[in-house]
Simulated assay, not measured.
Amino acid sequence: MPRWRQVADELERRIREGEYAPGTRVPSVLQLQEEFGVASATAQKALGGVRKRGLTYTEPGLGSFVRAQT
């Protein structure tokens, strides 16, 4: 499994289990790089994957936030 997918799956798990509540900011690219030991492009792709799954939204200049689950 690609590394970006592993990071995205972990972020999804944290969101679904309530570790990241709706409206809270998810880790930044830099934070993901440090935590998972991945490159910037990998962290960006992971965040994009979580966004495509409908779990987060991005506010330009502010970061990515957890979307309220329905």
Rank of each mutant, 00 (worst) to 15 (best):
V26H: 02
R14V: 02
W4P: 12
S28A: 11
D9L: 10
R16W: 07
L47W: 05
R5W: 08
E10I: 00
G37K: 05
L55Q: 04
E12I: 04
Y57N: 03
E34L: 15
L11I: 06
G37E: 03
V26D: 04
P60I: 06
E12Y: 00
G61P: 09
Q69M: 09
W4C: 11
P60K: 14
S40T: 10
E17S: 15
Q44R: 14
Q6Y: 12
T42I: 10
K52Y: 01
T56P: 00
V66K: 02
L55M: 04
E34P: 01
R13D: 09
G54I: 07
R3M: 13
R51C: 07
P27G: 03
R67Y: 09
R13S: 09
E10P: 01
L62S: 14
R53W: 00
V29R: 15
M1E: 09
E17H: 12
R16V: 05
T42K: 11
Q33R: 13
Q69I: 07
P60S: 12
M1C: 07
L55D: 06
R16L: 15
G48R: 06
A21I: 00
Q6G: 08
S40E: 15
Y57H: 05
A39N: 11
Q33S: 01
Y57L: 03
D9A: 14
A8E: 09
L62Y: 14
K45I: 00
A8P: 02
D9M: 04
A39G: 14
E59F: 11
M1W: 08
L11T: 00
P60L: 11
E59K: 15
T42Y: 09
P2I: 06
P27A: 08
G63T: 07
L32K: 03
R51K: 15
Q33F: 03
R51F: 12
A46E: 06
T70A: 12
Y57E: 08
E19K: 08
A8C: 11
G23C: 05
V38D: 05
V26R: 06
S64T: 12
G23T: 03
G37D: 04
Y20M: 00
A8V: 05
E34S: 13
T58Q: 15
V38F: 06
L11Q: 04
A41E: 10
V66F: 10
E12F: 01
K45A: 10
R16A: 13
R14T: 01
L62T: 06
L32E: 02
W4V: 10
R5G: 05
V66A: 14
E59I: 15
T56H: 02
K52M: 14
E17I: 10
A41Y: 13
R67P: 05
S40K: 15
R13K: 13
R14D: 13
G54P: 04
G48A: 04
A41M: 09
I15D: 13
G37R: 07
T56Y: 02
E35N: 02
V26Q: 05
A8D: 08
G54N: 02
T70S: 07
G49Y: 04
